[in-house]
Amino acid sequence: MATALAAAAVATAPFAMAQGHVDTPDVQVMSPYINTAKPGSKDYVHGMSMAQVTKRFGKPQKKLAPVPAKGDKLHPPITRWVYPEFTVYFERHTALHLVRHHPVPKK
């Protein structure tokens, strides 16, 4: 038994050592499309109810139907409310994010 364990340790040692010596660049990707709203900012809506979002921003221009459709137990329904300058994403009836609309870069 001890011989089998020692053989397994020797066989896997090169892989464990290789994982420890992988060079990874220290790169921080910044995108203008990432939601960076902080608690207390005007764009922070995380945890607000639909009623609170309506009170704060008014009625949305468009309310998109939940995805996936009702009845899918594997995934919670995500609903989007579209305003002129941003979209609010909800999981069931609780706000997750407010994402500002950005112009699409021309190629």
Rank of each mutant, 00 (worst) to 15 (best):
V82D: 11
I78P: 00
A9E: 09
P77Y: 05
H46W: 06
V10L: 15
Y44A: 03
I78C: 02
V45W: 06
A6E: 15
E91D: 01
F86I: 00
P25Y: 12
M30E: 11
S41P: 00
F15P: 00
L5F: 09
P103E: 15
D23H: 08
Y33G: 11
P103N: 15
H93S: 10
E85L: 08
A11C: 07
M17V: 15
Q19P: 00
S41A: 11
Y89S: 02
S49T: 15
T3I: 14
S31Y: 04
L74Q: 07
E91Q: 14
N35K: 04
A6D: 12
D23I: 13
P32H: 05
S31N: 11
P25C: 07
H93V: 14
P76W: 08
P25K: 13
M17F: 13
G40L: 06
K38F: 09
V29Q: 06
P25R: 11
A9M: 12
D23L: 09
P14E: 03
H97D: 12
H46C: 05
P77A: 14
T87Q: 12
V104D: 11
Y33P: 00
D23N: 12
L5M: 14
Y44D: 01
L98I: 02
P77M: 13
K106M: 13
Y89C: 00
M30D: 14
Q28T: 10
P68I: 07
A65N: 10
K70P: 00
I34A: 12
V82S: 02
V67D: 07
M1Q: 06
A18E: 07
T79I: 12
I78F: 04
L74D: 06
W81E: 01
H46E: 11
A95D: 01
N35C: 15
V27G: 00
S41D: 13
D26M: 06
Q52M: 12
L64M: 13
P14A: 07
H101Q: 13
T87F: 02
G58Q: 10
T3S: 11
D23G: 09
G58C: 05
G20I: 03
V10K: 13
A16F: 08
H102I: 02
S49P: 01
R100N: 06
P103L: 15
K62I: 05
A2F: 11
G47S: 12
R80E: 13
K55N: 13
A7K: 10
K59C: 02
A18W: 13
R92E: 14
S41N: 01
I78T: 09
A4R: 09
S49L: 05
G20D: 10
H102E: 06
T94L: 05
M1N: 06
R92Y: 12
V99N: 05
V53E: 03
R92W: 12
P84D: 11
K70C: 02
S49Y: 06
M50N: 01
M1T: 10
M17P: 01
P84R: 11
G71K: 10
Q28L: 03
R100K: 15
A16R: 14
R80I: 03
H93K: 15
K107R: 12
V29C: 05
V45M: 04
S31W: 02
M30G: 03
V88K: 07
Q28D: 05
P76F: 13
R56H: 06
L96P: 00
T24P: 01
P14Y: 03
